[in-house]
Write a protein that binds this DNA or RNA. Structure first.
Lengths: 217, 217
DNA sequence: CCGCACTTTGCACTCACTGCAATAATGGAA
DNA sequence: TTCCATTATTGCAGTGAGTGCAAAGTGCGG
């Protein structure tokens, strides 16, 4: 029997745990209601009521009503993952490097997501593409960080590029944008299939498809 | 009242012309104010006042405050352009085909944009990436249309694909998403450079860069 | 048990946005 | 020109998102 002390699975004191519980309750409430009546048919007042908090508290947890349905955006890749990517040099192709970088970003989920919340969110975002694009738009910061990471990798692969800032920046941005197109694609496929399998696998598939697309060019 | 003689560049009656003038006045007002004080520091009331209309009228022209700064999204490519793309067959590479399709979409601007409005918009979107991503997010419909167009092209290039709907759809979506990454890139470069040169040229450059990226793979 | 820090909440307020109905402007036809 | 149907503008009243502030509640260390 695996004996795990509670403090191993849940960190922090009562405060931290209550905070997470409230956050989840709010997300559950907004997702449930939005699936029933559509996102616009739900008010913050109802959401807060169902979640058992005051409307004012809702806004202590989420800056907007949208933020509650969209949920957390993937975190910046960890330092080690970034270092690995930058120094993977020409040994590993840029494409594979980016793929692994994104995979690490997905795996290091900021919080242990609740399965039911994730399921509802996936369904809702699939049914309302507007919300999906909003979620993607919210990844702007991650995108920007990715541009800078790619830039470092490019310089390392081809030091001559550092003399042509213009070209370097342009190329890094293009690569980062393409990477985001891949994320978007993987997520779409994943959501469309009711989330059978992990998002990781979908991302790998997307990169495989990208590879074959490039080959056949 | 200054009555401008109806030049042959403007079509339609007084109604149509007034409508366009009002629309432009509102955009000018919102852009000017937003450049001064930031988007959030401006109210619809101020915008409407500066534009010489009532706040209520503002919402007859734009559904949201954002819509006024974001402006019109590129239109769907024209039928002929679509047909050309679909039947360009393997003769023309998919990459070149998409490039030309997007170029035609940019050129067939829905309305003859006012230069000053475009300049202000570019500056504002460059300074506020949030608004830029919002603009991109608003192109969702165009994106969806593009997926369907690409699908037709893929089927034509490789009829066998039509048996594997799954694969076809996945690939079309990936291609369309990549195309949008290119648009985003071109627009970024264009805006960053104060819009020297045309957006068209930037898009061509982006596709050239994409090509070389693929080559070097 | 106490006091400190953090969290929740109520309240008052601003502002985006909407539906409706009254009014004004326009375009066309007699 | 005059009259009428159409369409555009506006005021008004109302909903609901989001914010700042201060008071009341709750967890935590001593």
């Amino acid at each position: 029997m695996t004996v795990v002390t509670p403090s191993d699975t849940v960190q922090g004191g009562v405060r931290e745990r209550k905070r997470i519980a409230t956050r989840n309750a709010i997300q559950r409430a907004v997702l449930t209601l939005a699936l029933e009546r559509g996102f616009d048919g739900v008010t913050v007042e109802e959401i807060s009521h169902d979640a058992g908090v005051s409307p004012r508290t809702f806004f202590n947890y989420f800056p907007t009503k949208e933020a509650a349905v969209i949920g957390d955006v993937p975190a910046t890749p960890t330092e080690p993952a970034i270092e690995r990517f930058i120094h993977a040099g020409p040994r590993q192709s840029l494409l594979d490097g980016i793929r692994d970088l994104l995979l690490s970003s997905i795996d290091d989920a900021p919080n242990p997501h609740e399965a039911d919340i994730e399921t509802m969110r996936r369904t809702l975002l699939r049914e309302h593409p507007y919300l999906f694009t909003l979620r993607m738009a919210n990844m702007r910061q991650l995108e920007q960080e990715l541009v800078e990471i790619v830039e470092q990798r490019l310089v390392r692969d081809d030091p001559a590029l550092s003399h042509d800032k213009e070209r370097l920046h342009s190329r890094a941005r293009l690569v980062a944008f393409l990477a985001f197109a891949a994320i978007k694609h993987a997520w779409s496929c994943w959501a469309e299939h009711g989330g059978r399998g992990a998002l990781d696998d979908r991302l790998v598939e997307t990169f495989d498809e990208l590879e074959s697309l490039i080959q056949s060019h």
